[in-house]
């Protein structure tokens, strides 16, 4: 497991790339033909999807769609702390 990512760093990366997606999404709503913004969206959306899947694989799912990554015979959704709790995201 030497290539296991650091949890805090990975979560921080998710927060950063997700925010880029959140912000450019609003810009694209009012500027749907801006090709530069569209390319930016695709770049960060891809990074976000990769990071979300990576997080689920090592630390449990953040969305119901990534629950399959964390193979276990338990329902992992409730195990990891909730975002407002200590150790949460």
């Amino acid at each position: 497991m030497s290539n296991k990512p650091n949890r805090k760093e990975l979560l921080n990366r998710i927060n950063v790339v997700s925010f880029a997606v959140d912000d450019v999404k609003l810009f694209l709503d009012t500027h749907p033909c801006d090709t530069e913004a569209l390319a930016y969206f695709h770049e960060y959306s891809k990074l976000r999807n990769q990071a979300m899947h990576e997080y689920a694989k090592y630390y449990g799912p953040l969305t119901v769609d990534t629950t399959v990554e964390s193979c276990s015979d338990r329902w992992n959704w409730i195990n990891e702390p909730w975002p407002w709790q200590e150790g949460g995201c």
Binding site: N15, S18, F19, L62, T63, D65, E80, W82
Partner: peptide, 11 residues
């Protein structure tokens, strides 16, 4: 809506 188990900005 789909819930994402993280805050948009950490607290």
């Amino acid at each position: 809506w789909i819930y994402e188990k993280r805050l948009q900005y950490p607290v």
